[in-house]
Amino acid sequence: MLFAQRQEAILRAVRLHGAVRVTEIAERLDVSQMTVRRDINVLAEGGLVARVHGGATLPRAARQAPGRQPVVAHGHGERWTVGMVVPAASHYHREVIQGARSAAESMGARLSLGVSCYDLGEDRIQAERLLDSGVDGLLLTPSAPLGEAGSSLEWIAELPVPVTIVERRRDPRAGLDALDHVTSDHEQGALSAARHLAGLGHRRIALLATATPTTGWLARGLDTATEVFGLSREAPRVLDHVPGEARLLGSFLDEVIASEATAAIVHTDEQAVLLAETARTRGLRIPADLALVSYDDAFAALANVPLTAVAPPRHAVGRTAAALLVRRLRDGAAHVPPQQTLLAPRINIRASTTS
């Protein structure tokens, strides 16, 4: 069925009943619910309907005409509702959520949350659930880096509401260039850690990281630092460390010693603390024999030897993303072009790199 035909069918139903539900229209027209949401969004932009929780109603003026019971619209003209999908309710993402919530509330918007448990399919399910609830825009953190997910993210570009991608760097393979992106500049974060270590005289800097969407950017940042500061390429790098495997920490430390590396960048805090303890049992002194920089800074300051750490701007990422999305909702098409916003992490110097 063509859009014009669907449009007429939706308008006819709204005028007849005063309101329609997405699920009912989708079933009646034999199209997807996402298609109906897009149609309703276009009709709402033209002032022909008002988008509400799970469907559409007559515009405000028609609803309040003599003889018709007034209906309070959700999200349009009163208070925006912003949906947010994150891959986990971890410490990292909780701070992003808190930032988004504080910005949304300060701008008169409400935040509604979905968690996808690092499942690309669940990303879409959670987004559609939030759309069904009537959100006006989405903050979305896909469960994988955009380049890795590739064509499996095409559905995001077709969503009927404004979308801001959070904590994922733009990648042309994902086809989401027309959307706003707000993320921590993890590449710059690794570069700042290496700059600090190089400034202390370290020429061989190892890298130990668990496999997360952040890890590839840390490696790129260290690559840049190696070139810019003339560092040795002989230090070991492990980018797929399995947390909880003490044996693997020991093997990594063996490689560090064998390569004569004198410093390491470690992602996350937990692994940095465990590596420091492993080094201590080998008789190595922190930082005299091995300087450590943690990439996380959730609890690095609480380590036995307080860890120098790079702190991604988690709260600021959420705050910036939510503010950008609400401004786009307010300004509509006038708020252009799409923005790619990178926020620089901060390095906090502690005893693990300076005596």
Rank of each mutant, 00 (worst) to 15 (best):
L191I: 05
I265V: 15
G134N: 03
L29Y: 07
L275S: 01
A73G: 06
V96Y: 01
A316T: 12
P236Q: 10
L329H: 02
H93N: 13
E234D: 14
G134V: 06
A100K: 00
R328K: 15
A303T: 04
G175Q: 06
A26V: 10
V242W: 10
L130M: 10
F229C: 02
V238S: 03
A316C: 07
G114H: 03
T278H: 10
A157N: 11
A272H: 05
D171A: 09
R169F: 07
G221N: 01
S112F: 10
L29N: 02
P345V: 13
S112M: 14
H335A: 12
E24N: 09
T164S: 07
V22K: 00
A322P: 04
A300C: 11
R60W: 08
R110E: 06
A149V: 09
V238K: 00
L113C: 10
G332F: 06
Q5C: 05
A303N: 04
T354R: 13
V305M: 10
A4F: 11
N41S: 15
Y118L: 13
L159F: 05
Q69S: 13
V166N: 03
A4L: 12
P337D: 08
V115E: 05
T281D: 13
A61E: 11
T353P: 01
E8G: 08
C117W: 14
G55Y: 02
E277M: 14
R327I: 11
H91C: 11
H315N: 08
I347F: 02
V166A: 05
A303Q: 02
L16G: 07
Q271I: 09
D185L: 06
A211R: 04
V31Y: 04
C117N: 15
A264S: 14
P287E: 02
A198F: 02
A190L: 06
G67R: 07
G121L: 09
E227H: 11
T268A: 08
D30R: 15
V326H: 00
Q7F: 09
I97C: 05
S355Q: 13
H315V: 10
M107Q: 12
R169Q: 12
G221V: 00
E128I: 13
A190W: 00
S355E: 12
P59H: 05
R237D: 01
G250D: 14
R319L: 11
R350I: 12
A194L: 05
T341G: 05
L139A: 05
P66G: 06
R346W: 05
L239Q: 05
H53G: 07
P162S: 08
P243F: 14
R101A: 08
R12Q: 11
D123F: 06
I347N: 00
L58C: 03
F252E: 00
Y118V: 08
P145H: 05
S116M: 06
V317I: 15
V293H: 01
T278V: 14
R346Q: 14
I257R: 10
G216S: 10
P338W: 08
G18C: 06
R204Q: 07
V293A: 01
D297S: 06
L48N: 03
G230E: 06
L138F: 08
E255Q: 15
G99A: 07
A174E: 02
E234R: 13
A9V: 07
